[in-house]
C-alpha cells in the first residue's frame, strides 16, 4: 500500500497536478511517524504509510497549503470527517487541495503491545489479522484487534466522505461494531455524582496544560485561543488549581461541541493519558439523544447542532431537575 501511494503521488508531482503533498514520515522511532510536508517527487522517498500513521492530517492544511497550486493530502476515512468540517467552516479551500483517500484497517497503539509484555521491539509487520513483532528477544505475534488505538475501537467505517481519488481496498466495508462507542460515557453516567467527581478530579489533575489536545484537534483551530488571549479575561497558561483544569477542559470540549468529529486525536496525544475524548463524546451523546443523531463532517454543508434549534427542544431544567444519583 505504501509503495502504491508513493508511486501515485510521485506521478501527480511529475504531471504537475500538485505542488505539495502532506503525508507521514518516520519519526524518532519506527512506530513514531510524524506528519510531513513533501515539496517534490524526490521528497516522497521518505514517505511511510503503515500501522502507525494515526495522525489526522486535515488540520495541517490550514497552515501548510502551498501558496500557489494544489496541495495533496492523504486522508484515512476518519480524517475525511475533519476535512469536511474544516470546509464547512471555511478554514480550508477545496479548490487548492487534492485528496487521495487511502484505506485503513485500524492503527496500532505501541503501548498496548508493550502492555502485552513484549519488549525490545525492533520491527512490526502485518500478516492478515496478525502482527508479527521482531524483538531483540526473537519474534512475537499478537492479534491486531487487541492492540488497536482507542480511537480505532469506535471506527466510523472505511468509507471516505470526500476524496478526489481513492487508494483503498476496503472502501465498502461496514464499520466494525461501534455500539460500544458510548460504553464508557454510560458507565460514568451511571456512577454517583461523587464517584464521577472523583474520577474526573483524578484524571484532570494529571493535566500539565501542554496543550497537545488543543493543538492536535482539527476543530480546535482558532488563530488565537481564548486561553492565550490576555484580553479575553480568562487567559491562563498553566493550571493553577483544580478549577482551572476543569475550566480549560470544559471550555475546550464546549467550543468543539457539535463540531467534533470524534477523531480521538486528543486522547491519543495526551502525554498524561487523560481520556479526553470522553468529554467530547458526552457532548456527542447528549446531542444525539436530545437533538437527533448528528455526525460532524459527514458532509461539508451541515448546520451544527449548536447553531441550530427546534421550537420543541428539551428544557435545561430536564438536566437540573433530573433525579440525583
Amino acid at each position: 500500500m505504501q509503495e502504491v501511494i508513493k508511486k501515485r503521488v510521485k506521478e501527480l508531482f511529475d504531471n504537475n497536478t500538485i505542488v505539495r503533498a502532506i503525508g507521514w514520515e518516520n519519526g524518532e522511532f519506527f512506530y513514531d511517524h510524524t506528519p510531513a510536508v513533501f515539496d517534490s517527487a524526490a521528497d516522497m522517498d521518505v514517505f511511510v504509510y503503515d500501522n502507525f500513521c494515526a495522525s489526522n492530517l486535515s488540520k495541517y492544511l490550514i497552515n501548510h497549503c502551498a501558496p500557489e497550486g494544489k496541495t495533496l493530502v492523504l486522508l484515512k476515512p476518519c480524517d475525511t470527517y475533519s476535512f469536511n468540517q474544516l470546509l464547512t467552516e471555511h478554514r480550508i479551500n477545496k479548490d487548492n487541495i487534492y485528496i487521495i483517500g487511502i484505506g485503513c484497517d485500524g492503527m496500532v497503539d505501541i503501548d498496548k503491545i508493550r502492555a502485552l509484555g513484549i519488549k525490545g521491539i525492533t520491527k512490526i509487520t502485518q500478516n492478515g489479522d496478525e502482527l508479527v513483532i521482531d524483538t531483540m528477544y526473537g519474534e512475537k505475534k499478537c492479534k491486531k484487534a487487541d492492540v488497536l488505538l482507542e480511537k480505532c475501537l469506535s471506527c466510523k467505517g472505511k468509507k471516505h466522505m470526500i476524496y478526489d481519488e481513492l487508494i483503498s481496498e476496503n472502501e465498502d466495508e461496514m464499520p466494525q461494531d461501534a455500539s460500544k462507542r458510548f460504553d464508557l460515557v454510560n458507565e460514568l453516567e451511571n456512577m454517583t455524582s461523587e464517584e464521577r467527581f472523583a474520577f474526573w478530579q483524578n484524571e484532570l489533575s494529571k493535566c500539565i496544560r501542554c496543550n497537545a489536545c488543543r493543538n492536535i484537534c482539527p476543530a480546535c483551530s482558532c488563530r488565537k485561543c481564548v486561553f492565550d488571549n490576555s484580553a479575553s479575561g480568562v487567559a491562563s497558561k498553566a493550571n493553577a488549581d483544580s478549577f482551572e483544569e476543569k475550566m480549560f477542559h470544559i471550555i475546550r470540549a464546549f467550543h468543539v461541541a457539535g463540531r467534533c468529529t470524534d477523531c480521538g486525536e486528543c486522547t491519543r496525544v495526551c502525554p498524561q493519558g487523560i481520556p479526553l475524548h470522553l468529554l467530547n463524546r458526552k457532548f456527542i451523546k447528549d446531542i444525539n439523544t436530545l437533538y437527533g443523531e448528528y455526525q460532524a463532517g459527514e458532509t461539508a454543508d451541515q448546520r451544527g447542532p449548536l447553531t441550530d434549534y427546534t421550537q420543541q427542544d428539551v428544557e435545561p431544567t430536564f438536566i437540573s431537575d433530573k433525579e440525583v444519583k
Partner: peptide, 21 residues
Amino acid sequence: YYARRRMTLLFSMLDYLGIEK
C-alpha cells in the same frame, strides 16, 4: 433557543463532571 441548547449541554457536562446539577 440557542441559549437553551447551550445551557442544556453545559449543565449536562457539569453534572457529568460530578458538579451538583
